[in-house]
């Protein structure tokens, strides 16, 4: 029983760690797509952010400066996307694809040039990265059975990013449904003409949305290189930007369901990591790759309308052109 509990605690702990960048990136995608701009470059922006954070933290020794650089880099990429697709009505998919590929090459190129470590950034010392935070009394309570263990292992001892992310979901939901910004954001993704006739600048709304997208992707990237790990590693996003996109679709572009989808994907990953090679009753051994494919298979199934149709914001992907 106790063994089971500690396994459970370990899995939940891992779920939180793995889901953090997914949730941040998925929320980033939520802002872009709710405003009517498709963004398949969550991956690229995260990777760019991870590199900027790793590089600047290594150079300055400050994790916070690294975070700032990550946000700047990611917002800059989002602004290129906005310039191409909002201002000049370029194809949002092509632009996103370009961004993903550009960063996949640019980050290791700059890394190699600056640090000569084969594209990585140098390993970060303790000051240059975000360390787990121990909440008050966590150590004292660690020995208390069950509750103490849950508190000290699951609730305490995470990176600041984990707490920021858990707060970001209700904040996003509040912004989206209770604020003027959210109202206009949702409107511009559904019917930009209605927003225009209401006297609101459609283009500026979409730029604002993409700025938020950039910030969140930057934070997610910084988490990867200065929180979860201690350096930027080539292709360290490894498809997490696309898993986030899948979660966003699976969560039907709503904050809480999107978070739950991220939890589900991360949980499956954590369980899989713990149970690797374990022969379970009835199901047998679950192959790793089955868990890897799960987010994508589920998203296709949802997109095809086999379990509850997932409908994108109506103006998504369509540039807004006013004059005929």
């Amino acid at each position: 029983m106790l063994e089971f509990l500690s396994l459970f605690v370990l899995i939940i702990d891992a779920t939180l760690r793995v889901s953090t960048p997914l949730i941040l990136a998925a929320l980033a995608g939520l802002f872009a797509e709710r405003s009517g701009v498709f963004d398949i470059a969550l991956e690229g922006k995260m990777l760019g952010g991870a590199f900027a954070a790793g590089a600047v933290a290594a150079a300055t020794g400050s994790a916070w400066l690294g975070l700032g650089a990550a946000v700047l880099a990611s917002v800059a990429l989002a602004m290129v996307h906005a310039y191409a697709c909002v201002t000049h009505q370029g194809n949002q998919i092509i632009s996103g694809m370009a961004m993903n590929i550009l960063i996949a090459g640019l980050a290791p190129t700059l890394g190699l040039a600056w640090f000569s470590l084969g594209g990585q950034t140098p390993a970060l010392g303790d000051g240059a990265r975000f360390r787990p935070i121990t909440l008050p009394f966590a150590d004292a309570l660690a020995d208390v059975p069950i509750l103490g263990e849950i508190y000290s292992e699951i609730i305490s001892g995470h990176n600041i990013f984990v707490y920021i992310t858990l707060a970001a979901v209700p904040i996003t939901a509040w912004f989206l449904y209770r604020s003027r910004f959210g109202l206009r954001l949702r409107a511009v993704g559904e019917n930009p003409e209605a927003v225009d006739t209401a006297g609101i600048n459609v283009y500026w709304m979409r730029y604002q949305a993409l700025i938020v997208t950039g910030i969140l992707c930057g934070v997610a990237g910084a988490y990867l290189s200065t929180g979860q790990n201690a350096a930027f590693i080539r292709n360290m996003t490894a498809g997490q930007g696309f898993i986030a996109l899948a979660a966003l679709i699976f969560g039907k572009w709503r904050p809480v369901p999107t978070m739950l989808a991220c939890f589900m994907f991360a949980f499956a990953d954590a369980v899989q990591a713990r149970l690797q090679g374990v022969d379970l009753p009835i199901v047998g051994v679950i192959p790793v790759q089955f868990v890897d494919a799960l987010p994508f298979v589920l998203t296709v199934v949802v997109l095809a309308g086999f379990i509850g149709k997932s409908v994108a914001p109506k103006s998504g992907g369509i540039p807004y052109v006013k004059e005929r």
Binding site: L183, R186, A187, N191, A194, T197, A198
Partner: peptide, 18 residues
């Protein structure tokens, strides 16, 4: 109509004049 179909009546009414 310049209405956002997924919004409530109230939300449509205040859009732009919040």
């Amino acid at each position: 109509f310049m209405l956002v179909n997924t919004f409530t009546v109230l939300e449509n009414v205040i859009l732009g004049v919040e």
